[in-house]
Design a protein around this nucleic acid. Structure first.
Lengths: 190, 190
DNA sequence: CGAATAAATTATCTTAAGATAAGATCAGTA
DNA sequence: TACTGATCTTATCTTAAGATAATTTATTCG
């Protein structure tokens, strides 16, 4: 499993054999069960994640209703806002499936970067990429109606529809589960 | 005008007198007239901006309609996606008012960072902050209906309503100008 | 000032989403 | 297998947004 992380890192920056072993000896891989909550509202997140296997969902609790903001799957990284800001988290992270995850803690990452300064540039690149992705998906979301958002999601992340309940996808699209069901019927009639 | 930039930078990282003068001698301040377009769809952006005075709007052109994605005002920085990715821009940047702007070019920034390496950490911090801001505002947008978005914008950026036409604010909120007008009437009746 | 243009509102009609409640279907398991 | 809870669908009603066109109000500029 460590190999996936190494592959991911070397897709950004080259690593020597020694550097690879420094990273491998960190032992940062954890498993979580379906349903486990990695972060709750109000908590301070001290960890970031890289998903090797499984699916993690982020969501807010609004008037008792869960509002999904993201589905993270294989090879995606999660950098909780709370982790970046040292403020209490506004949202939850929980596992929709059994997961295998590479976990970085604030302190361990700091120590690791001291030993391998080039990792800092990896983080910069990842942040910059995340920034771009967010901006693009926000802009898209804002200017597509729910039906177009649904069709786009079908195109870009078809896998989600096989592994995630529709009512979570509905709130992710910004609509209710009832409305999504109705929309799917409408689309299928065409 | 240079002082605003120095103030902004020193709010992140301390600068010696010498460092301040290095930055000041860069002569990176430009003025633009209302209506000037700083970036067009299809162009490669080689510049990022820090607004000292005025208001710049970013927007997509969809089926001939402008869809505003952001209003940038005093003390905000603009890092175009195209600038970050070296891909052609998907959107436009244009001045809604006469503007005074600190402009950073790819090459000049590189040279500047070579002379003042600590600026790299400033950029990292700014990217990280931007990332957080985007994520928060995306999450909010997704789970508020148009009326709540409007009320929230009134709270958080009341100044925009004095300097920006409502029909731009409408597309920024993800609705039509007609719909915004109707909504305002509805709200005022309450 | 007054004409031209830009910006905002109003009206009408259509369409789709929200809320709520009630069923139907599926999946895990005692 | 039959029960249970989870998931998805259907129906009804209400509300608000989209499209379009017409009109009013503001702003700009010769």
């Amino acid at each position: 499993m460590e190999n996936e992380i190494i592959d991911f890192i070397t897709s950004y920056i080259p690593l020597s054999g020694e550097e690879v072993s420094i990273i491998k000896e960190q032992n940062l891989i954890k498993s979580y069960n379906k349903g486990e909550v990695l972060l709750s509202e109000g908590e301070f997140s001290k960890e970031c994640y890289f998903i090797l296997k499984g699916c993690i969902r982020s969501y807010y609790l609004m008037d008792g209703e869960e509002r999904t903001t993201e589905f993270y799957t294989e090879n995606q990284s999660i950098r909780p806002v709370s982790y970046l800001t040292n403020q209490p988290s506004e949202y939850y992270l929980s596992c929709l499936e059994d997961c295998v995850v590479a976990v970085g803690s604030t302190e361990r990452n700091k120590r690791l970067i001291e030993r391998l300064p080039k990792l800092a540039s990896l983080i910069m690149q990842m942040d910059s990429e995340l920034l771009v992705q967010h901006q693009v998906s926000f802009d898209q979301f804002k200017h597509l109606n729910p039906e177009m958002r649904y069709l786009k999601l079908l195109e870009t992340r078809a896998d989600l529809f096989d592994r995630v309940p529709l009512y979570h996808i509905a709130t992710y699209l910004g609509i209710t589960a009832v409305s999504l069901s109705r929309m799917r019927k409408r689309i299928s009639r065409k």
